[in-house]
Design a protein around this nucleic acid. Structure first.
Lengths: 340, 340
DNA sequence: CTGAAAGCGCTAACAA
DNA sequence: TTGTTAGCGCTTTCAG
């Protein structure tokens, strides 16, 4: 079958015998229209299966598009998926739709995505900035009225709103929990790159907790990885040290999966663990996993709400909102420090 | 600061002293342009921070927008998040961006989202259809050349491509695994609504496996839930029966979380479990969780590849592609059938 | 209450 | 190599 052209406003108008403007009026409930005309128009719209072209409308109206652009490192990471959900829930009743992309923490991909979103005239731009990305190029758009917000990490080159978790305080609290249970050799399994804001903040919290307890910082207890497999290897490495840690602190959800998986595989239940960011089934593990829980949905909602306020004209100073974390004690942090 | 208007092609042209078309040519690498002009144009573009308006371009060119619309029940569900990632990975090098929304399995929200996507002239529309949704309204768009694809479940009212997992065979295999280990009273914890395609197919696989082993189907062993909490309650209910099941089959990833959490909470490790769809940390549980693993990334990639082929002119018959599941034996299915 | 003309930002088609 | 004209589908503006 030949591909038939999609009907336009003019097609509908012709079908009814009125002008395009009249059809437009009926559909947008703009201006008056006689009941009879309205009916006829609606009938024709249904008959032809007319779907107004939102791009054409936007072009003419000139305002931003009813989309919100979101750039995250990985769509499939449960943390960012939950953030996206929080954003969506908040902007839905404003008629905004989510335009999403994964940057893989690559500044070039991030740039390509933001450029694409800007070209689409998104109403709001929310970015989880990659290490090494510069955002000064967004300045004119900000000035032109586009709300830009950095999520999970601060951005470079642009003073604008950002939403982050209480990384340092949270990590501090988690590590202090381990120390309170007698641990003095505590390993840190962090993600990469080392310059990543969240890693640095959480490592800082770890160090602060050690210092508070007069435990010297031992670089050899800090391991790093890119993914779950890497975290497993890092865990294995730490536990194989001459003077191994009796407890581990996992720097994010993916590291947590690796740490827990490796401990289970090597049957080392006696190693205490606290993870930054909650993971599903944490309660079903033995021992159940103690975590410094983030609230990704709240991060998303706050990000959306803040940007919407900007869209509505809020011209106050750029601010950073910190979403608190919460230590959820489930047991894994209380394993005794003394190895058998 | 006053919101300055975004620069247009004409602004750039004026800045350089050439025509708009020339700027367009340079930016789209369409037609010839002298090195000197090209340079000047690029400089002006950088200076003004010009970002071409993709909507205006699309309007003029007339083709579909370079977006792919995806409607899923829940962005935050790891299965759909992974599917989205698979789609994105496949369409990225074609320059398509993901437009996403959650339907919450509500036909009205699904309809609103698809309408919005159609109005945006997405290049491809991929939908996880809700129970009760009718898709005959998409016919004209299909005819007009829009590839429409149903994902995870078949759609109603429109004959088009769909991608599903091998639900029935997978469930059959998982339940047979339990039967092979001596179980005859096997509970089924399924999601809702009961008319949901995946639930029905998986229940059918469950029943087929029972039948094959001459085990009568006992309705009282089938429980249902909407979410993890519900699945916990359903599990508790089943285990509280006068003649309780010695094994449980979880109908999807969320049900699996509930079943496992409840068994851990009530310390009933002796109950055998097989879950449909893999979950993270499955290997770290005790016993490790045996699952009928789906391949969400592959589902996404297949969906994207199939739709892209349609976009490229494939006019062959609508087909249903089944992505195979795989039984991953980890231990939880081998708990002995005899209760102490 | 309705229509005609103009124009949003961009590119196709032609001309120079 | 570059410019001019027209027009994508829609809405604004101004008349009727």
């Amino acid at each position: 079958m030949a591909a038939s052209r999609r009907p336009t406003l003019a097609d509908v108008a012709r079908e009814v015998g009125v002008s395009a403007k009249t059809v437009s009026r009926v559909l947008n409930e703009d201006g008056p229209a006689s009941a009879r005309t309205r009916e006829q128009v609606l009938a024709a719209v249904a008959k032809l299966g007319f779907q107004p072209n939102l791009m054409a409308r936007n072009i003419r109206v000139g305002g931003p598009d009813t989309t919100i652009g979101l750039v995250v490192p990985d769509l499939a990471n449960p943390f960012f998926a939950a953030v996206a959900r929080g954003i969506e829930d908040t902007v839905r009743n404003r008629g905004l739709t989510l335009l999403m992309g994964s940057s893989a923490d690559d500044p070039e991909r991030e740039h390509a995505l933001t450029a694409q979103f800007l070209a689409r005239r998104v109403s709001i731009l929310i970015v989880v900035p990659s290490v090494g990305a510069d955002h000064s190029g967004l300045k004119p758009h900000r000035t032109a009225g586009l709300p830009v917000l950095f999520l999970d990490r601060p951005g470079v080159g642009l003073a604008t709103d950002s939403i982050v978790s209480s990384n340092r305080a949270g990590a501090h609290e988690g590590v202090a929990h381990l120390i309170a249970h007698g641990h003095r050799r505590i390993g840190f399994v962090g993600d990469l790159p080392v310059k990543l804001y969240t890693r640095r903040e959480r490592l800082a919290g770890y160090r602060a907790a050690l210092k508070e307890a007069d435990i010297p910082y031992d670089r050899s207890l800090v391991a790093s990885a890119h993914d779950q497999q890497g975290a497993e290897a890092a865990t294995s490495h730490l536990l194989g040290l001459a003077d191994p840690p009796t407890a581990l602190f996992a720097g994010n959800n993916i590291m947590a999966l690796g740490v827990v998986a490796e401990l289970a595989r090597s049957k080392r239940k006696h190693v205490a663990v606290v993870a930054f960011d909650d993971v599903s089934l944490a309660e079903a593990l033995e021992p159940a996993l103690t975590v410094v829980a983030q609230d990704p949905a709240e991060v998303g909602r706050k990000a959306a709400a803040t940007s919407l306020a900007r869209l509505d004209g809020d011209r106050s100073r750029a601010r950073t909102i910190t979403v608190p974390t919460r230590l959820i004690v489930r047991g894994s942090g209380e394993q005794p420090a003394a190895t058998p």
